[in-house]
């Protein structure tokens, strides 16, 4: 059975534009009709332009948002109905510097967020220290997060995401704005998490990153699938719609697929 199963998922937002006293609601279809499956223990990539629906899909799967239509399950549990049970088995991180208490130390952050998963205090302290060592922050364990660089914050975010040993870790643009060495370090941490059995769903704008990390991926545009499969499958799908072009990388295939999709919208 797949670890994640998404069937015809839809998610709409109602935006209200204020003009004096009158508010005009507009419905935005962030995810229109999305279906895919993620197998246990793999790294699955969600690729797409800004506003394609990647983050909305992640937020729906992490039970932050209710789907408007369709169905999605995580570890066999329905995201709309069984959200409490899902929350015990997952964790997620968003790229950028948000998501931590900046006036607390790195260790305090990990211990606190870990305690929310009801881990025993002694296990929690050990786990926090192991993770801090794993992401290379042992020396800064007692420093306040507000003194951290972007790369250090991001490493701590990943440690926070792994504190409860999640079955599924959702990562929304985890390497955004990081330098090359930090990116490489984070890739090692992500691969290590995969090795220990965690299923990872990743969104990224960096296509070489997706090429390097993802076992399977889906390219989405305007909330719908454009292509999916392994990296080789997606390259083949790009080649198929542009037979005259020489498509050798995921990046080239992605651009071809998105341009063709945009031409159809």
């Amino acid at each position: 059975m797949a670890m994640i199963s998404v069937n015809h998922l839809q998610r709409d937002f109602v935006q209200r534009h204020s003009r004096t006293w009158h508010r005009h609601p507009t419905v935005v279809h962030a995810v229109r009709d999305l279906s895919f499956q993620v197998q246990a223990g793999e790294i699955f990539g969600l690729l797409g332009q800004n506003g394609a629906g990647k983050t909305t899909t992640i937020k729906t799967l992490t039970t932050l948002l209710l789907p408007t239509g369709g169905q999605a399950t995580v570890a066999g549990l329905d995201v709309a109905r069984d959200y409490k049970a899902i929350r015990q088995q997952i964790n997620f991180i968003f790229g950028g510097e948000l998501g931590l208490y900046r006036r607390l130390s790195a260790r305090d952050n990990l211990i606190y967020f870990g305690s929310l998963y009801k881990l025993p205090p002694t296990t929690l302290v050990q786990r926090a220290d192991t993770l801090l060592a794993q992401v290379g922050l042992s020396a800064e364990a007692d420093h306040l997060v507000e003194t951290f660089s972007k790369g250090m914050t991001q490493k701590l975010q990943i440690a926070r995401g792994l504190i409860n040993i999640p079955k599924v870790l959702f990562m929304d643009e985890p390497t955004i704005g990081l330098d090359a060495i930090s990116v490489q370090n984070l890739h090692q941490i992500i691969l290590q998490a995969k090795k220990s059995g965690t299923t990872i769903v990743l969104t990224t704008h960096y296509l070489p990153e997706a090429e390097l990390l993802c076992d399977h991926l889906i390219v989405i545009d305007h909330g719908q699938e454009v292509a999916s499969g392994t990296v080789a499958d997606v390259i083949a799908q790009g080649q198929k719609i542009a037979p005259k072009a020489q498509i050798a990388s995921l990046e080239e295939a992605y651009i071809t697929l998105i341009e063709r999709s945009a031409a159809h919208v």
Binding site: K59, T62, T63, L64, Y83, K84, R87, Q88, F92, F94, G96, L98, G99, L100, Y101, R102, F113, S115, L116, Y117, K118, R160
Partner: peptide
């Protein structure tokens, strides 16, 4: 604003308790 609200809200701990 610190971006921790989604993590607190979706943690297995009851948000009421928090």
């Amino acid at each position: 604003y610190m971006g921790v609200l989604p993590f607190l809200f979706t943690s297995p701990s009851n948000y009421n308790v928090l």
